[in-house]
Design a protein around this nucleic acid. Structure first.
Lengths: 213, 213
DNA sequence: GTTTTTCCTTGACATTCGTCCAGAAAAATC
DNA sequence: GATTTTTCTGGACGAATGTCAAGGAAAAAC
């Protein structure tokens, strides 16, 4: 009666696993339909559970969405780390980076559409802002790592700040995504070409030269 | 009986005027609430009409939204034309352009939020794509005019294509808008600084020199 | 001034939404 | 195996939505 006994294996684990499963179903649905048209029932339909269960694991719709955004972030963080690690020359890095950008649009288009949808939503829904801002910062850092490595390989200095560098590349990426979704066939090859043109502008043409022995 | 008489003054004019009034109310509401949360009743409440009238002037919700997007475009097209016309030096144009970018975020923030919201929506709703694509092209051309004038004043060549130039600046603008909406105090001054840094990169450092007599 | 046409309001409709709940089913505990 | 706890179901609720129609109000035409 007195002390409440706790199971030795935390039920939180199972709880969080289910939340993860629901988040995946939700992301699949959100990626297809977008934020505005996605209902909790539709999310449940795309999962193996019924619509009532959503409220068992999440307080309300916003909490589910925010959880999804955070869940989605975890997959993105390391997307270009292979590119960074594998590059052996500045030109090679640009090529690999551009190819990876195009690849992720091709393979994960709906997820990116969703990201821009939610980021726009956050301008109207303050409850989304914190999670969205956090992801945006994470993406900015990811891009910053790419550019830092690029500068390192090129033996030059970085010209712009992290925010500006990310914003510019994000603008290119977004336009390519829009074009791709709209069915413009060469949207992705154009993106690659644009990246090739722009990346050198990120660095000083200056004389920093190589620092390796 | 036979021939149907036509009024000499086309009633289409009045019809279109009303559509414009409704579009303005709709844009005001959409700018506040975003696409997802805006209902036809809310739009009507923010106008001087009742909710039924919307269906008298528009077939359905999508047609109203599309009309709004097109209506909104008409105001944007010439936003930077004064900047172009008034600039007398490359540096002056950059300053005026940056200031105007910041000003329109400050004064018309909700409208820009709406634009990015609708552009994201268009990735999920094919019915929006045509109108959105058209506006995006118009904006691209607007930016292109600015850059052309800039190159002209600087006596240099343009380095990038219209699409890439627009995408980059749009990325910066969007990040500034996000920061501004989120309440980051210095989002706009940072934007100005970024524009100052980036605009020179749009041109070749080359020797094209002045072409005027 | 009457008739006709245009314009707008009001109320209703079928859905769909987020949310909640009573209780079944399953799992864990004893 | 009985009991307690956790997990899930399916239905119900009120509110909100897009859509539409019947009819009044206003304007135009005659």
């Amino acid at each position: 009666m007195a002390g409440v006994k706790q199971a030795r294996v935390a039920p939180v684990d199972k709880h969080d696993r289910r939340r993860g499963e629901l988040a995946e179903s939700a992301l699949r649905t959100l990626g297809e339909l977008g934020y505005a048209r996605t209902s909790l029932r539709e999310i449940a339909n795309n999962s193996e559970f019924s619509h009532g269960v959503v409220h068992y694991y999440f307080a309300d719709k916003l909490e589910l969405i925010v959880y999804c955004v955070r869940y989605y972030k975890a997959r993105c963080v390391t997307r270009y780390d292979d590119v960074i690690a594998g590059a052996t020359s500045a030109g090679g890095l640009v090529e690999a980076f551009a190819a990876k950008l195009a690849e992720t649009i091709r393979d994960e288009g709906p997820m990116h559409s969703l990201w821009y949808d939610l980021r726009s939503q956050s301008m109207f829904e303050p409850g989304l802002r914190e999670a969205v801002t956090l992801i945006d910062q994470t993406l900015e850092q990811m891009i910053w790592r790419v550019i830092s490595r690029y500068a390192d390989l090129a033996g030059q200095d970085i010209r712009l700040g992290a925010a500006a560098s990310y914003a510019m590349l994000d603008g290119l990426f977004q336009q390519a995504l829009l074009g791709h979704v709209a069915g413009r066939a060469n949207a992705l090859t154009e993106l690659c070409q644009q990246v090739r043109e722009i990346m050198p502008l990120m660095l000083t043409a200056g004389r920093a030269a190589s620092r390796s022995g």
